[in-house]
Design a protein around this nucleic acid. Structure first.
Lengths: 110, 110
DNA sequence: AATAATGTTCGTATTTTTGCGAAATACGAA
DNA sequence: TTCGTATTTCGCAAAAATACGAACATTATT
């Protein structure tokens, strides 16, 4: 009998990967940065920052929303987007912890 | 004449997205965490932590290596992997700056 | 009611990612 | 030289990501 291996990913690792994946495209990084730098942010403003079609921008926004990093609010006839601060902090904490776990170790191979 | 738009992504945003993308899969997060927590880390050890085939592990390692987050060293007949600390710090700095740019603002929509 | 303004959704095409098993590679040991 | 160990590469398939234009939905204005 082979030794048992617990082979599932942890919830935390799944969550961190989810956040990272959402950030894994320059358009989405640009969107997040843009939103993080201002209060009022309509779809059109965001589209204006990017070298891609409206439909594509909309898709990227949907992914960011699904990952929880932003939120949208209809303000007819426009749509106002902004950072979801609660989850933003959560993401920040996840990344912080992740990177802190690689503090100086004496004997790594480099 | 339409107003000119500078529509290229910045190098920094491309780089950050690249790091984020590399971290955008639970297997790769798990690998990075594992490597960050120890000094000696052979392929087999890594494979043992994951619920996927060797070939797939090898692919994920390649992506992490291509993104610059890890490095491998042949130690015949094994291959020893470790965190690339230089780029790790770089990535950490990128994420830090990114998240810090969303400090408290008074009037966001949430 | 027709038009304009603002986004989203649909349909589609292309590329990339994820995953596996089998074959290949490299090399030390028998 | 053949065998076993350790890992990568190959070939393939399925699924997901990226991107676009066209069509649609909504509401404001004429």
């Amino acid at each position: 009998m082979d030794s048992y291996k617990n082979k599932d990913y942890t919830i935390d690792n799944e969550q961190l990967a989810r956040f990272a994946k959402a950030m894994g495209h320059p358009a989405r990084i640009t969107i997040l940065q843009f939103l993080a730098s201002m209060d009022s942010c309509y779809f059109g403003d965001i589209h204006n920052e990017l070298p891609i079609a409206k439909a594509t921008v909309s898709q990227h926004l949907k992914e960011l929303k699904d990952a929880g990093l932003i939120q949208g609010e209809i303000e007819t006839p426009k749509v106002k987007y902004c950072i979801n601060r609660e989850n933003w902090k959560k993401a920040q904490a996840f990344f912080d912890v992740f990177f802190e776990n690689c503090k100086e170790k004496t004997s790594c191979c480099n």
